[in-house]
Design a protein around this nucleic acid. Structure first.
Lengths: 148, 148
DNA sequence: GGATAATATGTTGATATCAATTTAAATGTC
DNA sequence: GACATTTAAATTGATATCAACATATTATCC
């Protein structure tokens, strides 16, 4: 006589096997760990690599630009910039026209570190793509894009 | 005359458009935010929901069991349990045979909260599945599983 | 041009994440 | 049975994540 107030084990199995959020977080953690290890020689995390890479463009983007690109909260971006600023990889400057806006750019050291990280990225990314096969990667990218 | 020490913008676009890690983190953040908002009425995060759900089984699992299931570091699990213990949703007990091992179980309050959260999960999950279509969801789950 | 609304960002507090190190307990070897 | 090895988990320190709130600047309306 179970009271209706308790979730059955069947429901647990349903969530465990079907929850896209759980599957996403699992995979995100696993892949992040892999890239974090690969980037160890250049002392970068996967997120720091992606952030630096997103700043490598002709025109320095604003905080909001980058937070949208990375689908992260603005305040998270503020926090993530701090260690990179401390290490002299990134520069934050006020926009000359709109003084509310911050323009984010790589320093020379930042660009050099990105260059050093590229071979690590290529190797690790190739390993990961092998896990799902060549055609699967494009499909997966499209699915993930639709979710964010 | 670029020095070869600077990553080209083309490479940036390649990484931005193809990096599975970036795509995964993006989607993981976006979906996590959605579930976090949905679970607001029961004061749970997506990760806390998944953790509680993973404890809803006949035999109380160990820390290592759960950390493997969620593909997270054991020390992360230790940290995540603390707020749930404080709220009386989870109990941690030493195994009677092997005193190194901790057995994790839900309290009655934990089970009730899970029950209250289920309708929120169903609704949110249905919304998310719509973003990628019915056949896509199974495919995506399989791909994500392969990565973790 | 002064009050008001909208926009861009920062600060604080809580949880999440992992590596490196440490502690405690069980197992294996002799 | 004593000592080394292995295993399970906790602690510490750094970064990551977001909501709620606060601040500064620009734009708008009258």
């Amino acid at each position: 006589m179970s009271s209706g107030e308790e979730p059955s084990y069947d429901i647990t199995l349903l969530v465990r096997d079907h929850c896209l959020c759980l599957h996403l977080q699992r995979a995100a953690r696993a892949v992040a760990r892999r890239f974090d290890q690969a980037f160890r020689p250049v002392d970068l995390t996967n997120g720091q690599f992606s952030l630096l890479m997103s700043l490598n463009r002709p025109q320095p983007p604003s905080m909001t630009d980058v937070s949208r690109l990375l689908a992260m909260d603005r305040t998270t971006l503020t926090a993530n910039l701090k260690p990179l600023e401390r290490r002299g990889l990134v520069e934050v400057a006020s926009d000359t026209v709109d003084r509310r806006t911050r323009r984010l750019s790589l320093t020379a050291a930042g660009r050099e570190l990105l260059t050093a990280a590229m071979p690590l990225w290529r190797r690790t990314h190739a390993d990961i793509e092998e896990l799902i096969g060549e055609p699967g990667a494009d499909r997966l990218r499209a699915d993930l894009w639709a979710l964010s």
